[in-house]
Design a protein around this nucleic acid. Sequence first.
DNA 1: ATGGCCGATGACCGTCGGTCATTTAATGAA
DNA 2: TTCATTAAATGACCGACGGTCATCGGCCAT
Lengths: 240, 240
Amino acid sequence: MTVGHLMNIGGQMSQTQKRTALRKGREQAQRKGDILRSAREVFFKKGFLSTTMDEIARGCDLAKGTIYLYFKSKEELYISLMVEGLGLLRDDLNTIGVLDLQADQLLGEILGVYFAFYQKNPQYFRIMFLSSQPDVRERVRDELMQECLGRAVECMQVLNEIIEKGTRSGIFRKVDSWSCAIIVWTTINGIITQYEQDPFYRCEILKVNLEEMLRAALELALGGLLINNPSEQGKAKSAS
Amino acid sequence: MTVGHLMNIGGQMSQTQKRTALRKGREQAQRKGDILRSAREVFFKKGFLSTTMDEIARGCDLAKGTIYLYFKSKEELYISLMVEGLGLLRDDLNTIGVLDLQADQLLGEILGVYFAFYQKNPQYFRIMFLSSQPDVRERVRDELMQECLGRAVECMQVLNEIIEKGTRSGIFRKVDSWSCAIIVWTTINGIITQYEQDPFYRCEILKVNLEEMLRAALELALGGLLINNPSEQGKAKSAS
DNA sequence: ATGGCCGATGACCGTCGGTCATTTAATGAA
DNA sequence: TTCATTAAATGACCGACGGTCATCGGCCAT
């Protein structure tokens, strides 16, 4: 079984018992963190298939069996990194909320944050691929997949609010903000993950710049989103 | 080594020799096809990780060793299915070219073909995920990856021509058609592949219809692509 | 001091991708 | 028809890997 599966602090416990239980909890979180760190290093360097559980164990000075006290499978360890990545991205996106800008400019800021995140941690995007494989998901607890979903929704919530703001302030057409947020989120993710397939996009035939591609996609989308006015004319020139 | 690696027909061969060589070639193609068919069935049903080479071998009544005479690795067999899928999609897309429609309508047709293809063979899209893993690509010959790239370019070429047509006929702004084609291709692929991550998009929170999402994305893009004119106003309502 | 409990351990297991010595079949010259 | 030659097919076998579990050892309440 997993570690600490009966760990409920409180109730009829003595003071010392409580203290030990709390310490145990901290130690467990620490172990879990150690394992995740090692997993991140190895997975990021080698990819899912070429990574071995033995190597991860070596990386955090634990026995292989110990890892399985904290994570159900290799896949679950991998997906946990995805949760981690979505959390980091959400935190970055949330720094946008406080800016006092027009909705369309905010979308531009989002793109900047997104692209910066990608440049800092391109590896997190590669993880997203595997989570779509049904046979991978079979080996991950539903609870963990739900956590993924929750984090993704939190990211989209940022987009949702911006689009609502744009609609409210009258510079965007009346669209369903959630649908639109999902489309934008999906499109950005889609472009980046597609781009990650280097041989497709970094070869001499198709050499394209990711940031330019994202900007151009945003311009296209804004073209459809903004209430038309003459000053918008020609904005799409950056797609050239 | 692979089968028939010295297969060059012609030169100083007798008639009978030539005939047998040709037949051998046909038989080899047949075997390769048999293996691919079996691989398709098993991979599509079970996914990459849960599929075993033994099962594929059983499915085409060959010994496991024989498969390795025709494909270098499990990964190469998988990527070969991706090439197959891109070929099918290209063929479907090419049926659009002959239609006599406006560029923006042609883009709508493209979307229809694309969506129909996805509904018919959703599994081919799942394959694309794995091809982006570096450790997978390491186990696939460059030549095969190039074939993938070539097929993808052929698909994008269809988009490219449509956008060029739209620019030429004056209904699209002046954009670089290749950049734009790549963006559209990437976006469509991105949306579909993202959508394939069911738990994200089929859950009650985010339940979205893929076709609507694609249409809405196209409307947004068209909004940015078309030369503004009053009749375009309000087209984005379908995003709601 | 000590008994009991629980997290840590790593030898071990079954499975799988991939190999290669051997078998089988086809071919064409005698 | 026979037989030597060649190449494709075979499947027992190998090493590696994900995952398990009987055992160990240190900590804690008594």
